[in-house]
Simulated assay, not measured.
Amino acid sequence: MGSDGELIDIVDTADRVVGRATRGEAYARGLRHRVAFVLVRDADDRIFVHRRTAAKRVFPSLYDMFVGGVVGAGETYDAAALREAEEELGVSGLPSPVPLFTFPYDSGTGLGSWNSAVYEVRCTLPVRPQTEEIDWWDFLPEEEVERRLRTWEWVPDGLAAYGLLRAHRAAGEAARHRFG
């Protein structure tokens, strides 16, 4: 079964399952579903960045600083984060991604909306990214990712997640300075 035929949970804004549909139907009808985002860092703290293939249904040929994807029917965000990270990176034995925060996303493009869980994981394994999913990839220093935000075309949901991640980190830094 192709990914369009994959069964996924349809959820409400409170993330309660209200039904099931195929992925293709969820996108065609703009149904709210679940997505896991995983920021991958290597041993040198660089971020895994990639360009999606032109064949991708959602956001083809755009850059992303997250791996991840749609959470399957009955699957947890945690399980999906690990499964998607291992699949896209082409590795096995990755540590469990650490959950950071959740946020709702509305595509504004007719694709619908999704409840999103953001994770981070350190990958010290040699990666062999899926060629069906990823056209180009590299581990980039965070400063380089920041520079490329202004010049590359990024997936909008990943860009939203990255902006929230930076805001969460800035708030955490401010709190540490206030409370020592």
Rank of each mutant, 00 (worst) to 15 (best):
Arg29Val: 03
Gly5Thr: 07
Leu140Tyr: 14
Ala174Pro: 02
Val40Ile: 06
Ala28Asn: 11
Asp42Trp: 08
Val118Phe: 00
Thr102His: 12
Asp45Tyr: 11
Arg29Gln: 15
Asn115Tyr: 09
Val17Asn: 02
Asp106Cys: 01
Leu149Gly: 11
Leu164Ala: 10
Ile10Arg: 01
Trp136Thr: 14
Pro156Asn: 07
Asn115Ile: 15
Pro60Gly: 01
Arg176Gly: 06
Ala80Thr: 00
Ile47Asn: 07
Ala117His: 14
Leu7Ala: 11
Arg150Val: 08
Ala79Lys: 06
Leu165Phe: 06
Gly74Pro: 03
Ala171Phe: 06
Val145Asp: 09
Tyr27Glu: 08
Glu133Arg: 09
Thr151Val: 13
Glu142Trp: 07
Tyr162Gln: 03
Glu84Ala: 12
Gly5Ser: 14
Ala161Asp: 01
Val58Thr: 06
Phe103His: 15
Gly90Pro: 12
Ala171Thr: 06
Asp135Leu: 12
Asp157Tyr: 00
Gly68Trp: 00
Gly110Lys: 08
Ala174Leu: 09
Gly19Asp: 03
Glu153Gly: 05
Trp136Cys: 04
Thr76Gln: 08
Pro97Thr: 07
Thr13Ile: 13
Thr131Glu: 13
Val155Ile: 04
Ala55Pro: 01
Arg169Gly: 02
Gly5Gln: 13
Ala43Leu: 10
Ala160His: 08
Arg176Ala: 15
Asp9Gln: 05
Ala161Asn: 00
Ala80Gln: 00
Ala43His: 08
Ser96Thr: 14
Gly112Met: 06
Leu140Gln: 14
Ala28Phe: 04
Arg128Met: 02
Arg41Ala: 12
Val49Arg: 10
Gly74Asn: 05
Pro126Glu: 15
Asp64Asn: 11
Tyr27Ala: 01
Ala36Thr: 08
Trp137Asn: 14
Gly112Val: 07
Arg178Ser: 10
Val127Asn: 02
Asp64Arg: 01
Ala160Leu: 10
Arg23Ser: 04
Val17Arg: 13
Val121Cys: 06
Val35Thr: 11
Val49Tyr: 11
Asp15Asn: 14
Arg23Ala: 03
Leu165Glu: 04
Leu100Phe: 07
Glu25Gln: 14
Ile47Tyr: 12
Gly158Gln: 02
Gly163Thr: 13
Pro104Ser: 03
Asp45Ser: 14
Ala170Met: 05
Gly163Lys: 09
His50Cys: 15
Ile47Arg: 15
His168Gly: 02
Ala175Glu: 12
Ala85Leu: 08
Ser61Gly: 12
Pro141Glu: 15
Ala174Trp: 04
Ala160Glu: 13
Glu133Gly: 06
Glu142Gly: 05
Val11Tyr: 03
Asp138Tyr: 10
Val145Lys: 07
Ala174Gln: 11
Val11Met: 05
Gly5Pro: 00
Arg128Asp: 11
Ala36Phe: 07
Val70Thr: 14
Ala21Glu: 00
Gly180His: 05
Gly2Gln: 10
Pro97Ala: 08
Ala170Asp: 09
Glu84Asp: 02
Arg83Ser: 12
Pro156Ile: 03
Asp135Gln: 15
Glu120Leu: 13
Gly19Tyr: 02
Ala160Ile: 00
Ile10Asp: 00
Asp44Ala: 15
Asp138Phe: 07
Phe101Ile: 06
Val98Lys: 15
Val35Glu: 05
Glu120His: 03
Glu173Ser: 14
Asp15Pro: 04
Ser3Ala: 10
Pro126Tyr: 04
Arg16Cys: 15
Ala171Met: 09
Gly74Gln: 03
Gly30Ser: 07
Glu142Ser: 13
